[in-house]
Structure formats: C-alpha cells, structure tokens
Amino acid sequence: MKLSLRRVLTLFAAMLFALATGMAAAQATTNFDNAPNGAHYAKGAGEPICTVNSTTQTVTCTSTAIEGVGNTNATLTLAVTNRISGVCHNPGTNDKVVDPFSKSVTETNSTGLTPSKNGRLLVPAKSTTGTSTADFEETFTCPNPNWTPEVTSNVLSYQYSLTFAGFQEPAILING
C-alpha cells in the first residue's frame, strides 16, 4: 500500500492533536522558596487556574492574592505559543505537496506588580490570545508565491509565571 506525503502528514497532524488534547491538564507549581520570606496565599486565595478557549486561541488565568511579600515587586507573564504545521501545494495539481512547514508563534503579555499596603500582592486575572489558523494564513507565504499554503495543525501551549524581583525562578509556574 502506497501512502502519499499528504496522507502521512495528515496522520502525523492527527496524532499530534490527539497527544496534545490528551495532555490538556496544566502542570502547576507554587514554590514560595522563590519569594520573599513569609510569602503565602491570602486567606480564600490559591493557585491561579488557567483555561483555554480553543475557538479564539485565548488563555485566561484567574486572579489571586499573596501576602507576606513586604515591598518586593513581581512580574506576571503569560506566554501563548502556537505550533503551526502545514504544507504548500503546487497550483498545477492541489494533490502535489511541494514544501511542508512548521512554525512556532509566541504572544507574550507581561505586567509589573507592586504590593499594596501591608505586603499584599494582588495578582490580577491575565489573558493572552495566541495565533489562529486564519491569522497565520493571512501572513504566511510559501517559498514560491504561486504555491498555496494549507495548515494541517495548530497546537496551543502556554506558560504562566509570577517571578519576584531578586529571584531567578518563578514562585508560581503553570505550563499547559
């Protein structure tokens, strides 16, 4: 049985999609060793929870509050990466795959945070929108302008981090 390159790439994309959706649970870590001495979640607050809207390619993480940070500032970052794969087609015959491609596009949103009175850091909700397939196709060109691009997969991942000034590692890290 002979498989065309297009079928092989389509099967590969389907396997990547299955793998990505099978690992949908985010890995969250809070390590207050990477924060000022005495830092802790405020009463009623806890580790942020991130959700993904696959229609809009938007990741949204909930707010939280951390007490015991003194006057130490922090940086909150949410980076969304889309790994986009596809092929370019020769216009003479749309079944002829000319050039496969794979690109990563990352959108990053960072905010500096300053504690309020009594060493309480209010961490706001954070959202970042990645790159949709339609947005990618509007800007991507194949090596030959006569070829037509076709996206076969668009896999989203994200990283949320809260890092205190003077610390090398984040106190909160969520990978999804």
Rank of each mutant, 00 (worst) to 15 (best):
N37R: 12
D33Y: 07
A14R: 03
S102V: 05
K43I: 04
V69I: 13
L9C: 04
P100T: 06
A18Q: 05
A134D: 15
G68K: 02
A65H: 06
V105P: 14
T93S: 13
T51E: 09
G166E: 10
G70D: 13
G46R: 00
D135L: 03
G112I: 10
W147S: 01
K117M: 10
G70N: 12
A79E: 05
V151R: 00
M1Y: 02
R83S: 15
Q57Y: 07
I174H: 04
L113K: 04
P170L: 04
Q168C: 08
L11A: 14
T148Q: 07
R6Y: 03
F136E: 12
Y41L: 13
V98H: 09
L76A: 01
P115V: 01
L156C: 03
F140C: 04
T163P: 02
P36Y: 00
P100K: 07
A171W: 07
T29S: 15
L113Q: 12
G86Q: 08
Y41F: 13
A125E: 12
F136A: 08
L76V: 03
R7F: 05
F136Y: 15
Y41P: 05
T60Q: 09
L113I: 08
D135Q: 10
R7A: 12
A74S: 12
T55R: 15
L113N: 12
V69C: 08
T10G: 04
T108D: 11
P149V: 00
L121M: 11
V80F: 08
Q27Y: 08
T75E: 14
T141Y: 01
G112A: 15
S102Y: 05
N71E: 13
T30K: 09
A18C: 11
W147G: 00
T21D: 04
G119T: 10
S102I: 03
G86I: 14
G70Y: 06
G112S: 14
P36Q: 05
P143W: 00
